[in-house]
Design a protein around this nucleic acid. Structure first.
Lengths: 210, 210
DNA sequence: GTCTATAGGCTGATAGAC
DNA sequence: GTCTATCAGCCTATAGAC
């Protein structure tokens, strides 16, 4: 499974052969068919295992019910932590997105969407309700913008690498950590209601929203 | 070439066969080898053609030297326009990123980085110099956050589709247009210096930066 | 459970007629 | 330029010895 995960991530499903996996793991290729029905089944097993670690990591890191700002930071930090802890997770997930339109990952994505993402969206809406965040932003779009930053950095890692002067190998771990910090700050700077000078118009708005 | 572009985008390099391309384009498979040296060469030609359209689209849309806010909007709008105009561009590019670490696209990416991206970064730095933008954000990171939003929406399109309630087929064209508008607003909201109430401290800061 | 051997099919690429 | 025919090699998957 480890060998398969590595190879599927590095070369993709179609370009990885059963014999490669056997060689990489020092086993016989026929043995793989003793444990898995087919190459496709092996791939499903690998993917399910990897997705399990995302779900675990995400679940453990979000303290629900805390204030909006902490939720935003928590989500971005959990992205960074999960991605940093599983080196070929982003590649494997990216391949799944593109090769199968995430068909195998759909249940997991829907679950993350229904929990983590909804919580982020709700935190943003809550922040708007209390007047902490500006009201003129769609909470769903804002949540996507928030997670998109770190997501793009790892999905488009060769591009990000060039933009950061690191070359095609992509950002370093340090870059990702630093960018994660920035991403949370950036999202919160966009969300926070600007401290407008006290005019009548803004006062009226303040009263209706608090 | 059109058939090859479509198939390479839909199924990937390894999973696309020369005979598939021949069948799709109503030609003989041997004829492909008359025009292209190998499958890999055909892929390179397809990719070069596609990348040309990105470069063209980007070049035509950015008015250099305009004010920082216009540059930010222009970059995001050009992303949306190029992606909307070329349906399988994001998929093909995503596959190139992941299958070859963008090795074939490197010159184009470096060029876009040296022109478009540097211009965006410079516009942000300029905005900071004039006091229009807050100074406590790294311009390079801010530029990545800006382009990451629409980039993520199309690269992780099945995820974005689920988050937006559209399913695995991803966001609609309308979604991408609307999100592009939001993305520019979101980035500018993050960048703009908050209009702090006039205290002595903020006045002092104002005087040193303008 | 682990191995060897191999079937059966598809692939990229070429030779050569027209 | 376009076609048919075909090769040599690699692939997934299985049969069967141990």
């Amino acid at each position: 499974m480890d060998a398969a995960e590595q190879l599927f991530a590095r070369r993709g499903f179609a370009a990885t052969t059963i014999k490669m996996i056997a060689a990489e793991s020092g086993q016989n290729s026929a043995l793989i068919y003793y444990y898995h029905d087919s190459k496709a089944a092996l791939y499903r097993h690998v993917l399910e295992r990897v997705i399990g670690t995302i779900a675990d990591g995400a679940r453990r890191r979000i303290a629900p019910g805390s204030d909006p700002e902490r939720v935003v930071r928590g989500v971005v930090e959990s992205q960074v932590a999960v991605l940093a802890g599983n080196p070929h997770l982003p590649v494997l997930l990216a391949r799944e997105l593109i090769d199968w339109k995430a068909a195998h990952a759909e249940p997991a994505i829907r679950h993350l969407s229904a929990t983590l993402f909804q919580e982020l969206t709700k935190a943003i809406a809550d922040g708007q309700a209390t007047g902490e965040f500006r009201p003129d932003i769609d909470p769903t779009f804002a949540a996507i913008s928030t997670i998109a930053q770190v997501g793009y950095l790892v999905l488009a890692s060769p591009i990000a690498g060039i933009l950061l002067g690191r070359g095609l190998d992509g950002p370093t771990d340090g870059d990702i950590q630093a960018f994660g910090q920035h991403a949370a700050d950036f999202a919160l700077a966009a969300l926070r209601r600007p401290a407008v000078p006290a005019t009548r118009a803004s006062n009226r708005l303040e009263e209706t929203t608090t």
